[in-house]
Design a protein around this nucleic acid. Structure first.
Length: 592
RNA sequence: GGUCCCGUAGCUCAGCUGGAUAGAGCAUCUGCCUUCUAAGCAGACGGUCGCGCGUUCGAAUCGCGCCGGGAUCACCA
């Protein structure tokens, strides 16, 4: 339907007829604000074939274009730039199409097609979620919605790192220090309680190490031999051998953590279709390694460890099985990926993972390709930069993290405070007001994180980073609420309008043309695994609307027909805003 | 040392499949609420696009080389 595509088709034919140029040379781009027009053809690439001056070439194309199509109304030539203005007819048609398309921008999903699997969050169970997880979760959640909107079925999964030395540390400390403390008895969220003991372990460990050192043991030796760490190692072995007491404790503490995570996920608005647990999957992959040895993908060294040589791909040798036959991370990831393609009818798998693991995933994908899985080229990595604090890196075991729950509390509080300052509280009853502050606080946080290109590293300053003015979530929500209000108030206006009743203002044209880009924006965000594309589109849309709003009155427009038309236009804008914010996981309140 | 990512206004970021005078927000300053929500709008101020060389009619954008920041290359997870 898109006007740019139809224009490109016409141009393609025309330029071939005129000069014999191919599509590659057709460079169409939006016209800069300073010039008249909507879209610009850059004619420089055509000059070689046209053998005319830039101006003459542009003129010639302009004239012919007007003869050939009614998409374009007028043109102007500035140097080598042919600026084209869409005709009223095509603008009208564009708006009619948008209006006639329910859920404009969202492509229908064919349920019978294979799905795309997205893995994200992937927490450890020894500590609560923090700001780093928030970036991961928001990206995963948002990209899942975007993929759905672009017409894919999705399966959202997380792999929960529920075993290993980390959780044993929490278990050990709890056994030592807790006196049987539980989430119920302490009133703490389960994940926070377990995290508390993880930090306690670290303190105790450091204490024991320094005591050991002062009694004459070398630092290196002390770190390995201190009582608490030795006991943790024993615990891990007991867990692996299925010791019932240990497994019971492990299971109890993990369940505390899960109920805590569930609350946080719910608050963030995410939900997984399936959880994978590392305790179930950590043995996967060994069989595949054996298979790969037979096929000469892997090789065994003298000490019995198994490797893959990736030097011909510009990478190193990589271990896939230890000399004692036990797995490394890579082993599990190989096995888990293969398992997933068996478990589900999926045709792609996207991992949302911090960029510190780029190398790991590059290797993983390469190994799976070498193992001959044809879906290996459908593996993707949405890699994102770390979130650091002004004071440096967050470290859970040292406790200097921005906790996910605390952060959301803080955001809600800030929204409440601002709303009271602005004197808006009186419009609402208490519950409604609370919900609104949740929407706005979370909107600010989500937009702050998602508007940035995922691959950029970001510094988060809890005191300064979050704003409610300017290029922010609440600004978009405010714009949405404002338009909603117009529609509410305009409901009484029953006038019918037709295109013959009025001419379009410049801002109205801008809005219609800008709205029409929404589907491409979604496709582009899906293709690039980048929600920030949606975020900046919505921001631009809001800017254009607010500018329109300031210049023209909707409800007090010159005639009843124009009022009716503008209300209709508002309906389309509000729909795109709401859909778009939804893709970012942000609520769009009707008033605020 | 090898590899990957980042470097654009005082700060936070767009723009990067080459195109016209590099755009927003925050901060600072000026206007605009007795008319549809001022969490807004209009404007001012603010730039050697890290540096150099190259490719090109044209480079923030592509290539090469530096510089700065981060990550990674574990029989850790």
């Amino acid at each position: 339907m898109n006007t740019i595509y139809s224009l490109k088709a016409v141009l393609s034919e025309l330029l071939f007829d005129l000069f014999g140029v191919d599509d590659i040379a057709i460079d169409l781009q939006e016209t800069k604000k300073e010039f008249n027009g909507d879209i610009t053809l850059v004619v420089f690439p055509i000059l070689k074939r046209s053998r005319l001056s830039p101006e003459a070439t542009a003129e010639l194309i302009g004239i012919r274009l007007l003869e050939k199509t009614n998409i374009i109304d007028t043109y102007s030539v500035v140097h080598g730039f042919l600026n084209l203005t869409y005709s009223r007819g095509i603008v009208i048609k564009t708006f009619d199409t948008i209006k006639a398309t329910p859920g404009f921008g969202i492509r229908k999903v064919d349920k019978s097609l294979p799905s795309s699997m997205i893995e994200y969050s992937s927490p450890n169970t020894n500590k609560p979620l923090h700001l780093g997880h928030i970036r991961n979760i928001l990206l995963g959640m948002s990209i899942s919605k975007i993929l759905q909107a672009s017409g894919m079925n999705t399966i959202q999964v997380q792999i929960i790192n529920d075993r290993g030395v980390q959780i044993c540390k929490s278990m050990w400390a709890w056994s030592q220090f807790s006196n049987g403390e539980t989430p119920e008895s302490s009133g703490m969220k389960g994940d926070h309680l377990v995290g508390k003991y993880y930090v306690l372990f670290d303190k105790e460990y450091k204490k024991q190490v320094s005591q050991s050192i002062s009694s004459g043991v070398s630092e290196e030796e002390a770190k390995k031999s201190v009582k608490c760490i030795v006991q943790v190692q024993e615990m891990l072995l007991q867990w692996e051998s299925g010791d019932s007491e240990i497994v019971k404790l492990w299971s109890k503490m993990n369940n505390w953590v899960y109920s805590g995570f569930d609350k946080t996920y719910k608050r963030l608005g995410t939900d997984f279709d399936k959880n994978y647990y590392e305790s179930d999957t950590y043995l996967l992959g060994k069989i595949d390694i054996e298979e790969g040895i037979k096929n000469n993908v892997f090789f065994r060294k003298k000490d019995n460890s198994v490797w893959i040589d990736l030097s011909s791909d510009g990478l190193d040798e990589k271990l896939v099985l230890r000399k004692d036959g036990s797995s490394v991370y890579m082993t599990q990831d190989i096995g888990t990926a293969i398992q997933r393609f068996k478990d589900f009818e999926i045709n792609s798998l996207t991992y949302v993972v911090g960029n510190e693991q780029d190398y790991h995933f590059k290797v993983l994908f390469l190994i799976l390709e070498k193992l001959g899985y044809k879906w290996a080229n459908k593996l993707r990595n949405l890699s994102y930069g770390m979130v650091d604090l002004p004071t440096g890196k967050m470290k859970s075991r040292e406790g200097n993290v921005v906790d996910a729950d605390d952060l959301m509390d803080q955001m809600e509080l800030a929204a409440m405070k601002l709303s009271n300052e602005l004197g808006k509280a009186s419009f609402y009853d208490e519950i409604e007001h609370k919900e609104l502050n949740i929407s706005l606080g979370h909107g600010a946080l989500k937009y702050f994180i998602l508007k940035v290109d995922p691959k950029k590293r970001m510094v988060f300053n809890p005191d300064e980073s979050i704003d409610f003015n300017g290029n922010t979530g609440p600004f978009l929500q405010y714009t949405h609420a404002r338009i909603s209000s117009l529609i509410r108030k305009g409901r009484g206006e029953q006038s019918k309008w037709s295109w013959d009743d009025f001419s379009l203002t410049e801002k109205e044209r801008d809005l219609i043309l800008f709205l029409s880009k929404f589907p491409e924006i979604i496709d582009s965000a899906a293709l690039n695994l980048n929600p920030s594309i949606v975020a900046s589109y919505l921001y631009d849309l809001a800017k254009i609307f607010n500018s329109f709003y300031q210049q023209h009155s909707v409800l007090n427009a010159e005639t009843a027909q124009i009022v009716a038309f503008r209300v209709d236009l508002c309906k389309q804008i509000v729909s795109v805003m709401k859909t778009g914010l939804g893709l970012l996981g942000i609520n769009a309140p009707d008033r605020m």
